[in-house]
C-alpha cells in the first residue's frame, strides 16, 4: 500500500513536471513579441517582448522550452512556457527564419541569407553542423523518426533532403516556384510541400524522393505557405496566404474539399494534439483564426500583435 502510494506520488510529480500549459504561442514579426493565448478561454493572457523580428517558433520535444527565431538578432530566444520568461538567447547563424526541432532536441534552422542550414544543440548553444543548401532556404520539416530533414530553398526551387546523423544532402527534388513549407506523414514515407509562386501543393515519396502528385490550389492570389496533416492523416490543411483562406484537401488525392475564409495573408498553422482545433496566423489582419475542424468553421478570431507569423501549441 505504501509502495503504491509512493509510486502514485512519483507518477503525479512526473506528470506535473511535463504537464503541458495548453497555451498557444504566436510570433509577431513586426511587433517583436510573442502573444500567449489560453487554449481554453481563447484569450490573450500575456504578451512577451522577445526581440527583433520573431518568426519561426517551436517547442522542445519534452515541452520544457519554447524556441523563437529572431531574424534581426541572429539568435534563437529560449522561453520558459510556464513562467513566460525569456531565459536566454543562443546564436543561430545569419537571419534565422523557420526551423524544426528534432526528436533528439537539436534545432535545424534555415539561414536565409547564407544559403545553408544549421544544426544547433540548444543545451550547449553550439552550432554542431552547417549544411550548404540552395538560395534562400526557408521551410524545415523533420521526419518523426528523425532520420530525414527537408529544407526548402525558395530561390533554387528545391526540397533538399538531409540525412541525419550524417548531415549530408542525399537528394534534391526540383519543385514549383518558391517552395515554402513541408510536413511529414507519421510513417515518414510521405511528405507534403507547398510552392508559393507556383500556387501548388505536392505529395512527395520520401523513400524514392519523387513527387507523387501535385495540384494547383486556385487562382494567382493563392500563395500557399504552411501545410499540416490532420491527426488521422486523411486531411491536409494549407494556409493560402493572400487568398485569405485555409484550403482543406484530401491528403491522398489532393482534391480540394473546402475553403475556410480567414483573415488577411494567412501563413502559420498549428493543430491541437486532439486534432479538433486549427489555428492560423493572419499576417495583415494582425489576428489568429481558430477553426473547429469538425465543421471547418472559424469559431473565434483573436487580435494579436503586429504581423503574426508562426504558431505553436503546448498541449
Amino acid at each position: 500500500m505504501k509502495a503504491f502510494f509512493i509510486l502514485a506520488l512519483i507518477a503525479y510529480v512526473a506528470a506535473a513536471a511535463a504537464a503541458p500549459t495548453e497555451r498557444v504561442f504566436v510570433t509577431n514579426e513586426r511587433g517583436n513579441t510573442v502573444s500567449v493565448i489560453s487554449g481554453s478561454t481563447l484569450k490573450v493572457e500575456a504578451t512577451i517582448a522577445v526581440g527583433k523580428q520573431p518568426r519561426g517558433i517551436g517547442l522542445a520535444p519534452d515541452g520544457s522550452a519554447l524556441y523563437v527565431a529572431l531574424g534581426r538578432e541572429n539568435a534563437i530566444a529560449v522561453i520558459d512556457p510556464k513562467t513566460l520568461k525569456v531565459l536566454r538567447k543562443i546564436p543561430s547563424g545569419d537571419d534565422p527564419e523557420a526551423f524544426g526541432v528534432h526528436p533528439n532536441g537539436n534545432i535545424y534552422i534555415s539561414n536565409e541569407d547564407a544559403a545553408k542550414a544549421s544544426v544547433i544543440d540548444p543545451a550547449s548553444a553550439k552550432v554542431i553542423a552547417e549544411i550548404p543548401v540552395g538560395l534562400e532556404p526557408e521551410g524545415v520539416a523533420i521526419s518523426p523518426d528523425g532520420k530525414q530533414v527537408i529544407v526548402t530553398s525558395e530561390s533554387t526551387n528545391m526540397l533538399h533532403i538531409i540525412a541525419v546523423p550524417e548531415h549530408k544532402v542525399v537528394a534534391n527534388i526540383l519543385v514549383g516556384a518558391r517552395p515554402r513549407a513541408a510536413v511529414f506523414a507519421r510513417d515518414g514515407k510521405t511528405a507534403y510541400a507547398t510552392s508559393e509562386i507556383a500556387g501548388e501543393v505536392k505529395r512527395v515519396d520520401m523513400v524514392a524522393h519523387k513527387v507523387l502528385n501535385k495540384v494547383p490550389l486556385g487562382d494567382d492570389k493563392i500563395k500557399p505557405k504552411d501545410v499540416l496533416l490532420s491527426r488521422d492523416e486523411r486531411t491536409l490543411y494549407v494556409a493560402g496566404g493572400r487568398a485569405d483562406q485555409i484550403i482543406v484537401l484530401d491528403a491522398q488525392t489532393l482534391q480540394v474539399k473546402t475553403r475556410i475564409p480567414v483573415g488577411q495573408r494567412v501563413w502559420g498553422l498549428a493543430l491541437t494534439r486532439d486534432g479538433r482545433r486549427l489555428y492560423g496566423t493572419n499576417g495583415v489582419s494582425n489576428s489568429v483564426s481558430v477553426i473547429d475542424t469538425a465543421s471547418d468553421k472559424v469559431i473565434q478570431t483573436i487580435a494579436v500583435g503586429e504581423a503574426p507569423w508562426g504558431v505553436v501549441i503546448d498541449d
Partner: peptide
C-alpha cells in the same frame, strides 16, 4: 554565381 549554386545540386 547563383546558377552555379543551383547547378551544383543538379
Amino acid at each position: 554565381e547563383e546558377a552555379n549554386l543551383q547547378g551544383g545540386f543538379l
